[in-house]
């Protein structure tokens, strides 16, 4: 009976010792990464704080002015092909989305009444975009101008080189 109790105590002691040694070794082996992530996190928190303040200021300035100003570009991509898996299609859509937003980026902050609605679709309409080492031709289907600029585009893969 006494022997079993001693064994039990020894087992628990060994377990605790192993736990502490394991924890100490993990601290030594991954500690540097944890430290880096901690400092990066702190830096990002700081950035977030300053950007949030900036955003609030911009919002309050915008609400004071009566003109409608474009604040966001929201493209909607329709990919007309069955050659891709869902994941590939999502990736292509995301990249095209980014490209289209880049093309209209300069309009953010512009008052709506200063824009010519006839010219805006032409910025990307018929344009060939290189995404994921493939070429896609973009056709603007719908465009709605408001605070959020909505653009619906149909995308077809351009199988021929752009010169042909």
């Amino acid at each position: 009976m006494m022997g079993i109790i001693i064994n039990k105590a020894a087992c628990i002691s060994c377990f605790m010792l192993g736990l502490l040694l394991g924890a100490a070794l993990s601290v030594v082996s991954i500690g540097n990464n944890v430290d880096t992530l901690y400092y990066e996190n702190q830096e990002l928190e700081l950035q977030l704080e300053s950007v949030s303040k900036e955003l609030e200021e911009v919002k309050s300035t915008l609400s004071k002015s009566k003109d409608v100003i474009i604040t966001k570009i929201a493209p909607e991509i329709i990919l007309k092909t069955d050659n891709y898996t869902d994941q590939e299609a999502e990736r292509i859509k995301l990249a095209l989305n980014k490209e289209i937003v880049n093309h209209y980026q300069n309009l953010i902050g512009t008052p709506l009444k200063t824009l010519d609605p006839k010219l805006l679709p032409g910025i990307v309409n018929g344009r060939i975009m290189n995404v994921e080492q493939k070429q896609f031709k973009v056709f603007v289907k719908t465009m709605v101008l408001s605070e959020t600029m909505y653009i619906e585009v149909e995308v077809k893969e351009n199988l021929l080189p752009p010169s042909l």
């Binding site: 924890a23 100490a24 601290v27 030594v28 500690g31 540097n32 944890v34 430290d35 901690y38």
Partner: peptide, 19 residues
């Protein structure tokens, strides 16, 4: 230092700095 630094992990502080 080795055992003490485990506490840093538990409370979300940088362990190597504490170590």
């Amino acid at each position: 230092s080795l055992i003490g630094s485990i506490s840093a992990v538990l409370v979300g502080y940088p362990p190597v700095e504490v170590l």
